[in-house]
Nucleic acid binder design. Structure first.
Ligand SMILES: NC(=O)c1ccc[n+]([C@@H]2O[C@H](COP(=O)([O-])OP(=O)(O)OC[C@H]3O[C@@H](n4cnc5c(N)ncnc54)[C@H](O)[C@@H]3O)[C@@H](O)[C@H]2O)c1
Ligand SMILES: NC(=O)c1ccc[n+]([C@@H]2O[C@H](COP(=O)([O-])OP(=O)(O)OC[C@H]3O[C@@H](n4cnc5c(N)ncnc54)[C@H](O)[C@@H]3O)[C@@H](O)[C@H]2O)c1
Lengths: 213, 213
DNA sequence: ATTTTGTAGTAAATCAATTCACAATAAAAA
DNA sequence: TTTTTATTGTGAATTGATTTACTACAAAAT
């Protein structure tokens, strides 16, 4: 249904993620149908682009009525690959890593937060909430055995490259990189996204300046 | 120099931030000149777009030689508004907030991390590293007195809207919102950027799926 | 039945971003 | 000098994304 697709750009995928949030919200209020114009106000977009985005993936609504929310959620989840649970580990259980481990948001939905890894012997063997911290040495065995597909990386920046290069692309398909080493969008067939606090601050800084002029 | 500018899109600003990182790296290695093609390999872009981005802001290199690194850094910092220090506070000194407070990365450069705020009496008055945690009640007075321009928001999502609406746009010009409530890019004349972990995971999930097909 | 209403679907038009391709020019080499 | 070399700067071409504007339906109202 969405595989006779040419090239989908990342902005489209980001919009689908917005639609999904909006749909779940509408559903939580008991709605069962939604108009493209409702999604559009909620997400700050033109309604036509929403219809176009959906049509592109072979998703159609009912003329005069709108889209069926449940169906739409299911379709978008399928497109985003959220219909199949993915196993996730975190590497580097420091300040940021601990915050993420404690954060419940990830454990919902379709991401199965399995374990954390660290190389500090004070931390190895401890639990953070329900998540056990293992020694880094067991990382690759664990990834293989537990079919880990996603890695959250929160080690010191000096360790970033070494760890990324050690991950087995046979299993690991995606990395969310929180370190300040900016990695390319793909490396060894693993997709990488950088969460770059410095860049976000710089963008905000620019916007603020413009607003004054 | 950069104000007879029409409309600059956010992607250009994000690229400037990339160039800056690349330039600082080259500088740290002792280079004084850099070619657009060097920046281009480092940032994964075509060299022509780098030259075009820079020319657009009235920044020019030397034909046959390249760009002067120091000058380029200074110009980009000016464009991004990094030449003037900005005061920053964090609201919500919980798990994530504490990690950010302890993170040294922000304190460098041009962001002056001033204080944290919380409404939990167990936390008020304590220090996290060198940052003091104040009561939320003192927030607006503090913002006014200390000319706080940027807020990092790490409160529980249920508190997000209330706090955003309480911030005085006379002083606060930008918010980095880490909560799971997604805010519009601008509200009450304050620029807002959302750092949305769920969305990043969804995008990664999509990329992974595509890679398998 | 027939008309009206509301909203989806989409082709064409517009707007925006990127890349190409090459002239301009400064420095280095001959 | 003159020639060669390297790299910038930029108009034109291309590619991509968004918006407009209108048609096609389906349901509701008359
Ligand atoms: N804290 C933040 O808010 C924040 C913000 C932006 C970026 N970052 C980045 O996130 C990363 C982590 O920051 P932090 O503040 O949590 O640092 P931290 O020092 O508190 O945590 C790093 C953890 O990684 C562990 N570690 C070190 N080497 C390791 C290895 N080879 N394998 C496994 N574990 C290893 C350490 O034992 C430690 O527990 C850094 O790269 C930092 O630049 C942090
Ligand atoms: N921890 C993460 O990795 C992570 C990741 C993504 C998003 N988030 C989001 O970040 C936010 C914070 O997450 P957390 O894990 O640090 O939660 P947390 O509960 O540990 O921290 C929240 C802090 O805010 C304080 N607080 C509550 N109400 C307040 C108010 N009105 N004014 C000031 N302070 C107030 C609390 O006392 C607490 O210290 C949440 O919205 C969460 O959804 C967290």
């Amino acid at each position: 249904m969405e595989n006779f697709q040419d090239k989908i750009s990342e902005v489209v995928i980001r919009r689908l993620s917005d639609y999904l949030r909006c749909l779940n919200y509408a559903k939580s209020k008991g709605q069962t149908l939604i108009k493209s114009s409702d999604i559009s106000t909620e997400c700050g977009l033109k309604s036509s682009i929403i219809r176009k985005d959906l049509a592109r993936f072979g998703i159609f609504g009912m003329k005069g009525k709108g889209y069926n929310i449940d169906e739409l959620i299911k379709e978008i989840e399928k497109i985003l690959g959220l219909n199949k649970t993915k196993n996730v580990v975190l590497i580097g259980a420091g300040n940021l890593g601990t915050a993420i481990i404690k954060y419940q948001g990830i454990k919902n939905a379709n991401f199965n937060f399995v374990a954390a890894f660290d190389n500090n012997s004070d931390k190895i063997g401890k639990m953070i909430d329900n998540t056990k911290i293992y020694s880094n040495e067991r990382l690759n065995g664990f990834i293989k055995k537990n079919r880990i597909e996603i890695v959250l990386l929160t080690v010191p920046s000096s360790e970033t490259i070494k760890i990324v290069d050690s991950l087995d692309p046979k299993f690991v398909k995606g990395i969310l990189n929180f370190t300040s080493v900016i990695l390319p969008p793909e490396k060894n067939n693993i997709f990488i996204h950088n969460i770059d606090l410095a860049k976000e601050l710089e963008v905000i800084s620019y916007c603020m300046k413009k607003c004054l002029s």
